[in-house]
């Protein structure tokens, strides 16, 4: 088994686990954790694609941009979760879906 195959399996696993968290969990903070998992898979995929296609620097530059964007998404999402908890008193997505305070 080559290194590329191992990394592809990790990418598939991270994307699958992250998607499972997005679909199944009801806690807003756990949804952000699931999103982080999927983005980690995407970062690995970008770097691997750069290596395989011979455009190493393009893949790494895009991966760096994704790391920064992912961090900003996590910051904003967690701040939103804190505000939602203050205003609505819950982080349960099932309760938040009704849009009632």
């Amino acid at each position: 088994m080559s290194l590329a195959s191992i990394i592809i399996l990790v990418i598939l696993g991270l994307v699958g686990i992250g998607l499972y968290a997005l679909l199944i969990t009801r806690n807003l903070i756990k949804v952000v954790i699931g999103l982080q998992m999927m983005v980690k898979g995407a970062i690995l995929a970008l770097v691997l694609a750069g290596r395989l296609s011979g455009q190493v620097n393009l893949g790494q530059s895009l991966a760096l941009t994704v790391v920064v964007a992912d961090t900003i998404v996590a910051v904003i999402a967690l701040a939103l979760a804190v505000q939602i908890r203050r205003h609505c008193g819950t982080l349960d997505l099932n309760d938040l879906a009704t849009l009632r305070r």
Binding site: S2, L3, A4, S5, I8, L52, V56
Partner: peptide, 9 residues
């Protein structure tokens, strides 16, 4: 891609 070897940088 499965089984592909990584080229040199």
């Amino acid at each position: 891609m499965l089984g592909a070897s990584l080229p040199d940088v």
